[in-house]
């Protein structure tokens, strides 16, 4: 039993921080890139729109693991660009997430009624002002529920970073259960795997709860679904 606790402690102290850091980094990078891309895709001049569409299609169409290997091994072999494993994973998965997030934001922007932009322009706001003060705040609120989904998916994608040696939760779990195979009379590989799964579950739950809280804090009458079906 004490070894199981020890394993959990090891997962939490040595694997978890990297997983959390990578998740936050990916969400941040995805946000920083995905948001402007979404705006360019909706409001940009035609060449920008094509460019953004190409970008989004490209990074949504390549498996995450292949992207990671391209940035980690491919670039190094062909151009001598030596990125640390964490950085490779951050860039590869960050680009992937930015493509997905851009679609979340694009959908949200496009679901803000046209009349909002029209009313803003009629007041004399420039397009940029209207986007910033009218469209953006509404689109952001509409983005939270689908973004919660992206959070869960990004969190679990971080486990792919173990393939290039990032010591995060999954890799730490692997180290633990490979060791116990060499320990006499001990065989609880399943327990270790369940522990790893549990840590991911708790993380997902906490993240979702936090985002739900944010959604409630930002809630505005008229933004939620109206007319609840009661039976």
């Amino acid at each position: 039993m004490s070894t199981i606790w020890q394993s959990l402690e090891l997962l939490v102290t040595k694997g978890l921080p990297t997983t959390v850091l990578l998740t936050l980094g990916l969400l941040g990078a995805g946000l920083a890139l995905g948001f402007p891309i979404a705006f360019l895709q909706v409001y940009g001049y035609r060449p920008f729109r094509w460019l953004c569409r190409g970008y989004e299609q490209l990074f949504r169409g390549i498996p995450a693991l292949v992207l990671i290997l391209i940035f980690h091994s491919g670039l190094a072999r062909s151009f001598g660009i030596l990125l640390p494993a964490f950085t490779s994973a951050l860039i590869a998965l960050g680009l992937r997430s930015s493509a997905y997030q851009s679609q979340i934001f694009r959908g949200a922007i496009q679901s803000v009624p046209q009349g909002q932009m029209m009313a803003a322009r009629a007041l004399g706001m420039s397009k940029l002002q209207a986007i910033r003060s009218i469209i953006l705040p509404q689109a952001l609120r509409l983005s939270i529920p689908p973004w919660t989904n992206e959070f869960s998916s990004v969190l679990k994608d971080t486990s792919l970073a173990s393939a290039i040696g990032v010591l995060e939760l999954t890799k730490q779990g692997t180290l633990i259960f490979t060791r116990i195979q060499f320990v006499k009379g001990v065989n609880y590989i399943l327990v270790i795997l369940i522990l790893v799964a549990l840590v991911y579950l708790v993380l997902t739950y906490m993240g979702n709860a936090g985002l739900a809280l944010l959604e409630r804090r930002l809630r505005i009458p008229g933004f939620e679904m109206k007319g609840k079906v009661e039976r």
């Binding site: 102290t13 633990i176 490979t178 060791r179």
Partner: peptide, 16 residues
Amino acid sequence: ASDTTWPPFEWADAEG
């Protein structure tokens, strides 16, 4: 660099 899943040459103990 070491593939630390290979006792007795290299591995991680219960404390990491």
